[in-house]
Structures are given as C-alpha cells and as structure tokens.
Write a protein that binds this DNA or RNA. Sequence first.
DNA 1: CGAAATCTTGAGTATAATCAAAAACGGTGG
DNA 2: CCACCGTTTTTGATTATACTCAAGATTTCG
Lengths: 247, 247
Amino acid sequence: MALFDPSSHPLVRKLESVFKLSDDERHALENLPMQLTDIRADQDIGREGDRPSRCFVMLEGIACPFKMTDKGRRQIMAFYLAGDIPDLQSLLLNTMDHTIATITPCKVGFIRHEHLRDLCRQFPRVADAFWRNTLIDAAVFREWMTSIGRREAYPRIAHLICELLVRMRAVGLAEDHTAEIPITQVEIADALGLSNVHVNRVLTALRSDGLIEIKGRLIRVPDWERLKEVGDFDAGYLHLEKEQAAA
Amino acid sequence: MALFDPSSHPLVRKLESVFKLSDDERHALENLPMQLTDIRADQDIGREGDRPSRCFVMLEGIACPFKMTDKGRRQIMAFYLAGDIPDLQSLLLNTMDHTIATITPCKVGFIRHEHLRDLCRQFPRVADAFWRNTLIDAAVFREWMTSIGRREAYPRIAHLICELLVRMRAVGLAEDHTAEIPITQVEIADALGLSNVHVNRVLTALRSDGLIEIKGRLIRVPDWERLKEVGDFDAGYLHLEKEQAAA
DNA sequence: CGAAATCTTGAGTATAATCAAAAACGGTGG
DNA sequence: CCACCGTTTTTGATTATACTCAAGATTTCG
C-alpha cells in the first residue's frame, strides 16, 4: 500500500475516499485558503468553551479530544490522524464542549469557517461528505462506548490496537500489521477508562500471549485474525471503503 | 412550560429550535410523506447490518441504539425521545452499525430517504439543521463516554438523570424537576456500563441521600443544584437554545 | 387474580484502582 | 560517546468499586 502522499491535498484525499470529485470541486478544495501550522506535543488546539472561527485538518501527528471530570480525571474520546478534521462540528455548533490537544508534534491546516461555508454552499456534495465524516466520528464514539462500558480491559485494549492499525493503514501510516503508534500508556488508559498501571499489565499479558510485539513505539501484530477475535473487532463501524477495509 | 403539542409537526418543532423556518421550508416539511407507525415495546426498528431506505422520527415513547459484544453484553448508547431522529445517519452511511430498539411502546414516523434528500437539496438550511442534529448526537456520545470511562457509579447515574430531565423538559415531557421515566434499571445498567444490581444499590443510595424521589416510574429531584453537582452535570454538551437550557 | 417482569437484599468474589518505588528509555549537552 | 535528567514503563502490595450468583419481595399487566 502506498504511503501517505504529501503532494495531494489532504481534503481531496479525504473526500475522494467517499466519491469521485469533479474538476470544479477539486479545484475549489485545492484553493481553499489554509494556514499551515506546526504545533508541538501536549498543546491545546481548542479548548472547551471556545467559539472558534475556523476548523483544522490534521496533516501530521496525532491529536485527541478530551474532557476532564470535576474530580480531575481525563477521558480521551478519540485519536485523530492525518486527514481527520477534529472540530468540524464548530462549523455548526458555536461553543466547544471539549478540548482538543496534540499528543505528538503535529502539523495542521487551519481553514476559516466562512471559506468552508462557501464551499459547502457551492458544492453540496462536499457538504454531504463533511456530514458523512461527522457521522463516522459518531459511529466510532459508539464503538468506544461499547468497549469502555462492556468489554474487559484485555479485549478493550486489543480492540483499540485493531482500530488504530486499520485506520492507519487506510491513510498509509501503516503497512501490513505493523505501525508506529506514539501514544503513551497513560493516554491509552485515559482513552479506555483504565488506570495506566492496569494498561501496562494488560499490554504485558498481550505480549506474553503472542498477540502483539512492541519495540519502542513500533507495534507488530503477528496474528491479525487472533487479535481481531480477542478484541471483538469488526471494522464495519469505521465505514471505510472496501479497498481500505481489507484486512 | 407548555407540554408537547401534538398538533405541530415534529420536524418543524425540531428545526425551529435551531432557526426560524421560512414559509416554504415549513410547507415542505409539513408535506413530507411520513408513514405513521405504532411499535410495541422491546422491538427492533432497525438492525445492525441493515441498509435502510428510510429514516424515522420519534413521535412518542423511548427508543435506544445498542450493540452487543461477542460475550453477549449489551451497551445502550443513547435514549431517544419524541422529536429525535435516531437513524438519520442511514441517509449517508449505507449500513447500520448498530441496532435500534424500542424501550416503551412507540409512535414513529418513517420518511423515505429520497424525500429527505430532495428536501435537503432544495433547502440547504434544513440540511444544515439535520447535520447539526447529528453533531449534537455525537456530543452526547462524548459525554456518555466520559461518564462511563471516568465517573463512578454514583455520579454516573446522577448525571444520566440530569440529562434525561433536561432533555425531557426541552420537549415538554417534564415539568420542573419531575418526570416520568419509563426506563428499567436493567436498561440504565446497560446504558452506563454497570450491573443491574449495582444500579439498584446506587439508586437506593441516591434516594436515601435525598437526591431523588421515586414513585413508580415518576422521578422527582428535590434539589436540582445538588444533583447537578453530584452528577458533575453541565448541560452545555446538549447544545440547547438558551430558553430550553434554563434549569 | 396470577404469572411475568422488575426490583431488592445478602454473601462472596473479581477486576481493576491506588499507592509506591524501581527500572528502563529517550533525548540533551558536555 | 557517555553521563544525566525527565518521562515512561514496569513491578509489588494493598484496597475498593463493582460484579456475580442467588433468592425473596414487589410491581405490573393481561
């Protein structure tokens, strides 16, 4: 599978995974004013309560939306990869109900709402594609809810690894069943509603059971079918196109 | 606050909570062909894997989307009330990734996708309102994730009660701090990732702490501010208009 | 009125949390 | 190249929240 191609526009890539763009649509997307910005790790890009006037596209790195409870506990609600548009919702919902932060150093492209609105007005299919994007986000939230609420730690972690691998493959960030996943155990814990200590113990168990191999940030899955089964993983909820979903 | 007015069209009500409809828009909505159907309790309306050709609007009753894990455990991911459009996503995502079932006897209105598509094409603001609707669903999913992952059972249940009360008030199904909530403890357990036994114990504790009063299906909250605080509840994520959010 | 569903309570257990500290790792500068 | 420092991972010991199993009480509804 081809690696991420930095020469093609990220939004073009994103939308072309849904349908064939017309020349006009492609042209409009490529000429969308976008402010490229580098952001270092562990920085908030948008905060709960903000009223943003622009969205951003992930170009490189990993970011996450999270909330804090009154007891100071953090819940990470997703991991965003290259091509994702984390706060597309700000286009229609004025106030941010969560914070979005970088996990690794990131490259992002900011796009002003007005430009996106113009684009949606002129090309309804683009608006549909954005809408579809938010629907898939919601589908992923539902799956995470199911994991957090009803799967034990062992399958829960296996499930997350499956999801990340499939999504990274879909955007060319992983090949076969190996990927570099620069997410700490603390972050995994906050995403899955577990303690970092327990995450560590389960990862150790997954390794000694031969389900995963870890070298630094590199994770390899020797037996994909078995990991999928352990994690009760079915990629359907990601609503990827067939070619990409092939596992 | 006025009780639910069955004479006004549910979609008109829904969209008017977002913006003022033009006469044309209102007229188109009111003339949308809609098949009214009564469904008894505990029936699936749509199943995982289905490829629906229509959406439905909730008119009466409560329904829920859920998933089953391979171990046979159920996760309920939301509660849908009158006015909600549970599977709007089927308009853009072909295959259902979860099942939707009634909790109580329900009255629903089925609307064919083609009619909704025509409507969206003709009235872009209506499409925006639908999109906004799915964004709010996603915001609720995020809040639930936070509850399930990072709040203990006691605040978790308090939080759910707060949410249901606010949402029911918003559509005229509750007055003040009293509502009829026909959801069993097993269903609450499946929604919050708890066992029914534990839900029962926590509800007992909430009662003996004077936070809620239960008579049959009727639930009363004597001290709203205190329940909100216990449940770490802030209605912001529901993105209600100001008048409705007033607590 | 009676059967089925729901709620309640008790007893014992298990998964995962917390607390604490040591080991390993990754990057930096000398 | 290596020593050093902060971060992350790992391990141990103890505790707690919540689960399971089981049975009895209560409510709901036909």
